[in-house]
């Protein structure tokens, strides 16, 4: 193992010995994981296993009690979510953090609106055009970039949320149960979009309760149980039975 080959294959995200306690409650214990660009890793585990907590640690919402986070090889410590965001980490939440009464393009640029010089007026046309180009590229089928979120289906909304993450993420996208609220056809569409993100050289960490989905999408599967990291498996080299017994602890 030379130092040289180490840097070439250097992962986008390295978590080492992450530990998180809320008061006396230990939510994450000694968690370590590497994520490479163009790779989809699934995070699975029962309710309360600590999956969302882990995503919040990576995205800067919670600070780990101990442990190190490296982004492109550099140790980082985010004091809030906007710091993680400006480092190229985006999150897609299961409960759709979208403003319902706003058009798609304003949601895509929410908090990071484009303005024109010299008066700082919103550049709606540019935002609309960029949004349209992106949703076309990702094949998110919405009526238009100007459509109001409220008028979209659940699948279309999640498509918008993923498009937003894709637009801003330079390194890593975290998805917390992105299809939990969706029907079968909508889920298939969202999976297709997530799959297409690999080609953009982003690292992707996805939480899912559907093992079918996990096996369709992921390159590796990481199992958590009550805050403990049970193991990481290559998706191609494992099966549902093994993953289920890792999740439940029953052989």
């Amino acid at each position: 193992m030379s130092a040289n080959s180490e840097t070439i294959t250097s992962p986008v995200l390295e978590l080492k010995n992450i530990h998180k306690a809320f008061g006396g409650v230990v939510a994450i214990q000694d968690f370590s994981l590497d994520l490479k660009a163009g790779e989809i890793v699934a995070l699975v585990g029962d309710n309360g296993a600590g999956k969302s907590t882990l995503i919040k640690i990576i995205s800067g919402v919670h600070a780990p009690t101990s442990g190190t986070i490296r982004l492109d090889g550099e140790a980082v410590s985010f004091s809030d979510a906007s710091m993680a965001r400006s480092s190229g980490i985006e999150v897609v939440y299961q409960d759709l953090a979208l403003a319902d009464l706003q058009p798609v393009y304003m949601n895509l640029f929410l908090g990071r609106e484009k303005v024109r010089k010299p008066f700082g007026m919103l550049d709606r046309r540019a935002m609309m055009q960029e949004t349209q180009a992106l949703v076309d590229e990702l094949d998110v089928r919405i009526p238009s970039a100007n459509a109001m979120i409220r008028d979209l289906s659940g699948g279309q909304r999640q498509g918008v949320a993923i498009a937003r993450a894709t637009h801003w993420a330079t390194k890593l996208i975290l998805l917390d149960e992105p299809t939990a609220a969706l029907g079968v056809a909508e889920t298939a569409k969202v999976e297709e979009i997530v799959q297409s993100l690999k080609a953009r050289n982003l690292a992707i960490l996805i939480i899912s309760h559907s093992l079918d989905q996990v096996f369709r999408l992921s390159d590796r599967i990481c199992v958590l149980r009550r805050g403990n990291q049970i193991g990481v498996r290559e998706t191609a080299k494992t099966d549902k039975n093994e993953i289920v017994s890792m999740i439940t602890g029953l052989a």
Partner: peptide, 12 residues
Amino acid sequence: GDNARAAQVSGI
């Protein structure tokens, strides 16, 4: 006013 949480997680 539309969705304070969405605004918050968007860095507003």
